[in-house]
Design a protein around this nucleic acid. Structure first.
Length: 480
RNA sequence: GGCGCCGUCGUCUAGAGGCCUAGGAUAUCUGCUUUUCAUGCAGAAGAUCACGGGUUCGAAUCCCGUCGGCGCUGCCA
């Protein structure tokens, strides 16, 4: 049984990989992997005008980056391929013929304009918008007449009146009354299928066992069930995942939130581990109380039947928290590898300094994009920091004293290791009746220029004796 | 408008009739560690379980209604 588990992700390449698509992908992937099934990537590019090659690449890239690999997809045509719907047009046309011959569908010669008007007037009368079915019983003459006029036809599916109910994997029993929707289009006048139709055909042909998708598709499901029935297809199981919302509770949109996996999250320096962990916690929570989960662990722990039904609001603060955690888990080498793009070009060759700098700021990072700003003092002496030099509660005089005496003693310090420096500087503070803060704050600011930075001892060590002394001298000059 | 789905701390959620004077995480605040920030640790505050009726000895949990949010209602997917 379990070797028949086949699920799919079916994005349309009309935009970059979206966080919602990634969410759906993750749940499908987890379901396939834990059941030893197959995860299929099918590209729904039947809308020629909006589908773009670059988006296909973005989607595939993003999925790989997240670690969600697929078993069958657009790069190969074997198995049940091709997996690009634009390459399967003949298949859909064949099944349309079948429906036409069996009188389960008909040609519709209505123009978009006519349909628009029909909808408008229905709306004005406060009736539910629904196709009237006026082309359902066209005579041969009428058809001939339309064709003479040069009208193109679409193909509509005849919706029979009945109650459709199915057991959703997540929502449970759901029921619809089919008489509420009119005959809908399955083949557009340009010969391409609609999503509704192509999806059903492909799910059957590709032997998809479970259709797991966003809840925005729940209302489409009865139509697809009707279609599969008319075609004598077996029905897949359906499961509808709760949606991700903007903080104002509207459907997540890029106008109100970053939504692109690559252009937003990856670029800003979120780790795939953090995104995966964040995504899985929306709609699902582990039976064990722990909060940190790797993809590997999730394969065994995840349970589709425990997925919640209510939508979740995208909370970037939680993502940041998770990302900070995963950054801290990285070894210094791994951190250096992923950090390189965030370090200014002119510094990228200074491997040693990069490593030293990263080790100092690692626990302070929420996202990799903050690196450049936090690490710059390692490569370059700070400027214009005199306003920060005096610690809160201290005075200019004390600050001057702190800097000058420290400089004197540091000049004689040979080792320049953080522990030795700490001993030395604390002793100086006591001797000159300065608090630790009064002494160490100005030193730290002299070295980094920042009000918030790694500690004075570690920075002294990282910078080395020569550079440290230079910076402290500069601060003394500045405060005169 | 119609149909469908949903409704527990600000947010993600636990909760499957008594274990709930509702648990965890995050965010917030306060301590401790301490040279700042961050980390770590400890603690505080934060939920009339959307509202109103039922059923029951007992309901966040079951039923009905109301309200609210979202989705669908396209020759987009």
């Amino acid at each position: 049984m379990s070797d028949n588990i086949r699920v799919r992700l079916a994005p349309s390449p009309s935009g970059p990989l979206h966080i919602g698509t990634a969410h759906t992908a993750l749940f499908n992937w987890l379901f396939a992997r834990q059941k030893d099934g197959k995860f299929i990537l099918r590209i729904e590019d039947t809308d020629k005008a909006r589908s773009k090659e670059k988006y296909l690449r973005d989607i595939a890239d993003g999925l790989c980056w997240l670690g969600l690999d697929w078993d069958e997809g657009p790069e190969r045509e074997d198995h049940f391929g091709p997996y690009l719907q634009s390459k399967r047009l003949k298949i859909y046309q064949k099944y349309t013929e079948n429906l036409l011959e069996n009188k389960k569908a008909y040609q519709c010669y209505c123009t978009p304009k006519e349909l628009e008007e029909e909808r408008k007037s229905q709306f004005a009368q406060k009736k539910p918008p629904k196709y009237s079915g006026r082309c359902r019983n066209l005579s041969a003459e009428e058809i001939q007449q339309f064709q003479k006029e040069g009208r193109k036809h679409s193909v509509r599916f005849i919706v029979t009146t009945q109650k459709i109910s199915f057991k959703d994997l997540i929502k449970g029993k759901v029921e619809f009354e089919s008489s509420l929707f009119g005959d809908f289009i399955i083949l557009k006048s340009d010969g391409t299928p609609t999503f509704m139709f192509a999806g059903v055909v492909d799910d059957y042909l590709m032997k998809i066992s479970h259709v797991i998708r966003g809840e925005d598709h729940l209302s489409n499901t009865p139509k697809q069930i009707l279609l599969a029935e008319a075609l004598n297809f077996s029905q897949p199981e359906y499961g509808h995942l709760p949606l991700i919302l903007n903080p104002d509770r509207s459907k997540l949109s890029k106008r109100k939130n970053p939504t692109s996996i690559n252009a937003d999250f990856r670029l800003q320096g979120y780790l795939p581990e953090a995104i995966i962990n964040f995504l899985v916690l929306m709609g699902w929570s582990p039976a064990k109380g722990e909060e940190f989960w790797t993809l590997e662990e999730l394969i065994t722990e995840f349970d589709l039947s425990q997925v919640g039904m209510s939508p979740s609001i995208f909370d970037s603060e939680k993502l940041d928290y998770l990302n900070g955690y995963y950054i801290r888990q990285l070894s210094l080498g791994e951190l250096a590898r992923v950090s390189l793009p965030y370090i200014k070009k002119e510094y990228q060759k200074e491997k040693k300094k990069i490593l030293v700098g990263l080790s100092l700021i690692q626990e302070r990072l929420k996202k990799l994009s903050e690196i450049s700003e936090q690490i710059d003092f390692i490569f370059q002496a700070p400027e214009n920091f005199q306003k920060n030099l005096v610690a809160k509660g201290s005075t200019k005089e004390k600050t001057k004293l702190a800097l000058k005496t420290s400089l004197k003693y540091l000049q004689q310090e040979e080792e320049f290791g953080r522990d030795g420096l700490e001993q030395l500087l604390r002793a100086i503070a006591v001797k000159h009746r300065l608090t630790a803060g009064e002494l160490l704050w100005p030193i730290r600011v002299a070295l980094t220029g920042k009000v918030a930075s790694p500690g004075a001892f570690e920075v002294l060590e990282a910078l080395g004796k020569q550079e440290s002394l230079k910076r402290i001298q500069k601060a003394i000059d500045m405060i005169q």
